[in-house]
Amino acid sequence: METGSAAGAETMGTEPIWTGLPPGLLRMRRLLLVVWLGLLALALGLLLGLLGGPVWAAFALLPLAALAWGWVLLGRNWRSWRYAERADDLLISRGVLWREETVVPYGRMQLVEVTSGPVERHFGLASVQLHTAAAATDATIPGLDPAEAERLRDRLTELGEARSAGL
């Protein structure tokens, strides 16, 4: 399990132990990107090549450029995601350009959800989502190993029960 960059994690006192996301999510996202943009480039190249000649077919390079850019972007985005379980709260940090760091106290959790779509399941991934009484709390950890997701869910539920508080 690779750990994301530690930049910007300076804290006073206890340093949280950050966990990055497993590489499965990156692999899935990159594969999807390659498949979709590759198909688009192919279709565009064939269509324009047949209808307008080889010069037009060069436009098929655009999706390929987007692919290369997206490849890098996905990598950066994936590296930016990390979470830390502290004694009393969960930290989630994400985003490259639009950075967001969320702190959710365990006692405030109303519901912990593990979801996994068909594609995610195929790649052996699951996401954990935390809900508090505030709808604005946007605490999701995507692309976890299902076993880790379940461990996290059970641990969070357990901690939530122990530290539970009213509204």
């Binding site: 967001e100 702190v103 405030r108 009484a133 709390t137 605490a139 509204l167």
Partner: peptide
Amino acid sequence: KVQSVRLTQGPWERLWRLADVHVDTGAD
């Protein structure tokens, strides 16, 4: 009454080394 605390920073804010801190409460 704090349900969660969030820090957000957009690219322009980052350029000026600024950030926003949001405090979410139970009344949404």
